[in-house]
Amino acid sequence: MEVYKEWNQIRAVNKSTSKQKVYSIVYAIIIGVVLGLAAKIVDNPNVNPIFDNIGGRLGIWVFVATLLSVFSYSPKLAAVKVFAFFGAMLSVYYLYTIFFLHFLPEREIIFWSICAVGSAVCAYIMWYSRGSGMISNVISVLPITVLLSEGFELRNAYLPIHHHYYLIPWLMGIYLIMIVLLLIILPKNKIQLLVIIPLAIILSLVILHFNIIGRIFGDM
């Protein structure tokens, strides 16, 4: 109870009706279905490779999950919405793969299913990023760090199939837009930016140095 009170001081839960909660979960599922189908469709060499390279990377999903989390009525609802989103997105993506492409990537399904479960915990914590205090600032740094790290690493992107290396600056630009949007949405005031931006840069350098994202998600 004491822990709950402390976290409630960071950001208070917004009152909502059962109807509002159900609607928000349904919307998350619909978004997941649409984006899951879109991700599968653009995973095709005949489609503009810029969409494939965005949908096939971690950044866009971190960005969407962050928005779903912070614009929830409570941390519990944030966890349910993000899990529902990834559950719907992955279900559509791999059902399409199985029934239309006749391919069963068991290893990938297991890995991303585990990630979907973990995303609920991350969403619960991420909800507090739009709160007050140092804990809120540190939480806000996390998605920005992922986007900054992956976006910067795009300078070494290898596109052997499409040979569209001119797309790299465009991809980096999209990552920059997502980072700027999070910097606008997450901090409650400009002073928080003085903490968030330096921390994100430092953590990004650590992630890049040890290739943490590549080690975890490189084979997926």
Score class of each variant (00 low, 15 high):
F63Y: 03
S69V: 05
L35C: 09
W7R: 08
L181C: 07
G131I: 06
A84S: 08
Y128L: 14
Y128E: 14
T145S: 08
G56V: 01
L35E: 05
L182N: 06
I207Q: 09
Y27C: 12
R57Q: 12
K19C: 00
F111Q: 04
A38E: 12
I50S: 07
S72R: 02
K190W: 10
L68M: 10
V47G: 14
L194P: 02
A88L: 07
A200F: 01
M89H: 12
K81I: 07
Y166V: 01
G218D: 06
I109N: 05
P198T: 08
V195I: 15
E2L: 08
V180G: 13
I216Q: 12
T145H: 11
R11T: 07
G214D: 14
L67M: 12
K21W: 11
L68Q: 00
L199G: 04
I109M: 03
I60H: 05
I114H: 02
A12E: 14
F71S: 10
E108R: 00
G131S: 01
P169N: 03
Y165N: 03
I25N: 04
A123L: 03
V34S: 14
N53T: 10
I50M: 06
F210D: 14
I196T: 08
V80W: 09
A28I: 04
D52N: 15
S74D: 07
L176P: 12
M1L: 10
V42K: 04
I98F: 05
K81T: 03
H163C: 00
A65V: 07
I30S: 10
I161H: 13
D43C: 01
F71C: 02
A39I: 09
V92Q: 06
I207H: 13
S149C: 09
N44R: 03
N211D: 09
S136C: 09
K188E: 15
L186I: 09
V138P: 05
G214N: 09
N211C: 00
G214S: 11
I54P: 10
I109H: 04
Q9R: 10
S149V: 07
F111T: 01
T145E: 05
T145Q: 02
I109A: 09
V92A: 10
F85H: 00
S113N: 02
L159D: 10
R57W: 07
I54N: 12
S119F: 06
I213T: 13
E2A: 11
G118S: 04
P143A: 12
Y158A: 10
S119K: 01
L58V: 04
P143F: 03
K15D: 15
A28H: 11
K76Y: 07
M1I: 03
W112E: 08
A157V: 00
A39P: 12
W127I: 00
I10Y: 14
L186R: 11
W112T: 00
L182D: 05
A116R: 05
V26W: 08
H209P: 11
M178H: 12
S24L: 02
Y4G: 08
V82L: 08
A200W: 02
A38P: 08
V138L: 13
L37S: 10
K188G: 14
E6H: 15
Y4P: 13
I98P: 05
E108L: 05
A123D: 08
V121L: 11
N156T: 02
V141K: 11
L142R: 00
F111E: 04
G214P: 07
Y175K: 01
